[in-house]
């Protein structure tokens, strides 16, 4: 079993591999909020732009700040963007999708036309537009990225729920005279979860990508925060002399994205009935 075959042969399973990696990253960045080898914001003129060494494994930046400490201290910002935005689109998108599926007519029209409108703007631009007119910050980045992905979850949830509404057990509940909320909550939602969870896994990856891109453009957390996208943007001016200032947060970002992606793929293999069927047939 070569390393190359890993994603397809599932040895170890993507879920286990990605989950372990992700757990390590989450643990390291959570600890990093409180404890880092050096103070991530302390200037130290004598050790400006030092290459990686035993004292500074990832080197130092233009202010003599320890890059490893900054990476550790800033990681939770990327994680918060990814998971926070996913949760926003989940908690807004799923109820809207359910309502749109249940109330045909004017309510559905309004919701779905709003969704069409939001989807008509490329994701980065929708984020830019929201962040353009207000001073940037972590909370606003999360909200903007979450807003971008709400339409996708509305459409998905509605499609799944429309299929389920035709099922016998839902018709039975209707015949019993149950109201909209009990039907949606007890009959539809428990059966609609698998594709929604799979989509959420994907959304976390895309949200981290989009969030880091926005903060690379200066529309995320502001200095001296060490969000990884922002660190890369700041390190650009010294790219030739001190590439490690960009490379360290960049590679960490890639490892984070690969691990979230692996977890997403793993979830899909476990939960997506279509994929499962194909694997057997």
């Amino acid at each position: 079993m070569s390393v190359l075959a890993m994603p397809r042969l599932r040895v170890p399973s993507p879920l286990a591999l990605g989950g372990t990696l992700l757990a390590v990253i989450v643990a390291a960045t959570l600890v990093g909020i409180f404890v880092t080898p050096y103070d991530p914001t302390a200037f130290s003129v004598r050790v400006r732009l030092q290459p990686p060494s035993l004292l500074h494994p990832f080197g130092t930046d233009e202010f003599g700040r320890d890059v490893l400490s900054r990476v550790l201290a800033g990681g939770h910002l990327s994680l918060a963007t990814g998971f926070g935005a996913m949760l926003i689109s989940l908690f807004v998108g799923v109820p809207l999708g359910l309502i749109a599926a249940f109330h045909r007519g004017i309510v559905q029209e309004v919701i779905m036309r709003a969704v069409d409108l939001l989807i008509a703007l490329p994701p980065v631009l929708l984020g830019l537009l929201v962040l353009a007119v207000t001073p940037p910050g972590l909370g606003k980045t999360i909200a903007a990225v979450g807003l971008v992905y709400i339409p996708i979850l509305v459409r998905l949830t509605r499609a799944v729920a429309l299929g389920l509404l035709e099922e016998d057990f839902v018709q039975a509940a209707r015949a019993r005279g149950e109201g909209a909320i009990p039907i949606l909550w007890h009959e539809i939602l428990p059966n609609a979860w698998p594709p929604i969870i799979v989509e959420c896994g994907l959304r976390v990856t895309f949200a981290i990508l989009l969030g880091s891109a926005l903060s690379f453009l200066g529309l995320g957390p502001q200095p001296p925060a060490s969000e990884w996208g922002l660190m890369i943007a700041e390190g650009r001016d010294f790219l030739t002399q001190a590439p490690w200032v960009c490379l360290a947060p960049g590679l960490c970002l890639c490892v984070l994205l690969v691990s979230v992606n692996l977890v997403g793929e793993g979830l899909r293999e476990k939960l997506d009935p279509q994929l499962r069927g194909r694997a057997h047939g």
Binding site: A213, L239, T240, G250, C254
Partner: peptide
């Protein structure tokens, strides 16, 4: 595998690597 890795690298980081 290459596709899997390529998809997980943000554009701005590709740009940095390419410039470097």
């Amino acid at each position: 595998l290459a596709q899997f890795v390529l998809i997980a690298v943000p554009e701005f980081f590709w740009a940095i690597l390419a410039v470097l």
